[in-house]
């Protein structure tokens, strides 16, 4: 399934957050959205996922969702968005309960995603009993349970420490390589974008506009090799060059 963003603009009162965004997310690709603070990355993701209504333009999907997909555009949240009063199993079940699945389909889906995310042993644990990384795994398991066609991830690793981030990034990569789910990945972190994305969309400072689309012409599986480092470093410098000046201005704006 592909996602097409056509002329999307958004305002918060007098503040223009996004202006004239046109982009496509292709079938099976991971598109990273980067840009200075306040450029509207999360707003754009919310509009793509249908939980924010754009004040201008539209978002369309092209193609069919895979068989058994219960929620084609599925979110993974920065702060996990887990219900603290539900167990791991209950949090995953929340996304399935209202679909009235046949027979033991719900139990099978839950068992499958918990096994894929390494959470089977923790199915009866409450979120407060889990580390940050494990909580985000619950968020991923919940998203996978509905068999998404497009994953929309709002800085999914930013609330985690560096080691957990690295471990989860490897999990994401394994997931991409295995399932090739179309994904939009909002991040501040250029290394994450360079490790996970096929293309990087650089947004300008508010009002957010597409400043540049950068393709990373290298398979994700090859990016951890020493030979790839020089090329990735050049791409990193290029991306940083695109956002550095605006990030400095945005940072002063936020502080003020």
């Amino acid at each position: 399934m592909e996602l097409v963003v056509e002329g999307v603009s958004h305002r918060y009162g007098e503040v223009v957050a996004l202006e004239g965004i046109d982009l496509e997310v292709r079938e099976g690709e991971t598109l990273a959205l980067i840009g200075p603070s306040g450029c509207g990355k999360s707003t754009l993701l919310g509009i793509m996922g249908g939980i924010l209504q754009a004040t201008g333009g539209r978002v369309r999907v092209r193609g069919e969702a895979p068989v058994g997909s219960l929620n084609p555009q599925t979110y993974i949240f920065q702060d996990f968005a887990l219900l603290p009063w539900r167990t791991v199993e209950g949090n995953v079940a929340l996304a399935l309960e209202h679909h009235r699945l046949q027979g033991d389909e719900m139990e099978r889906r839950i068992a499958d995603v918990l096994q894929r995310t390494g959470l089977s042993e923790f199915r009866h644990a409450f979120p407060k009993q889990l580390s940050g990384g494990m909580r985000q795994r619950v968020g991923i398991a919940r998203a996978l349970a509905v068999r998404p066609a497009i994953l929309l991830m709002d800085e999914p690793l930013s609330a985690l420490d560096a080691q957990t981030r690295e471990l989860l990034m490897e999990d994401f990569l394994a997931l991409w390589l295995r399932e090739r789910i179309t994904a939009v990945y909002v991040t501040h972190n250029l290394q994450e974008a360079l490790r996970l994305a096929d293309r990087v969309c650089v947004l300008s400072r508010r009002p957010g506009r597409v400043r540049e689309m950068v393709s990373i012409d290298m398979l994700q599986a090859e990016r951890a090799t020493p030979a790839a480092q020089a090329h990735l470093a050049r791409l990193h410098d290029r991306l940083w060059g695109l956002i550095k000046a605006e990030a400095q201005v945005a940072e002063r704006e936020v502080v003020a």
Partner: peptide, 8 residues
């Protein structure tokens, strides 16, 4: 918003 994103 999470609940809405799963079409609850």
């Amino acid at each position: 918003r999470m609940g809405q994103s799963f079409n609850l």
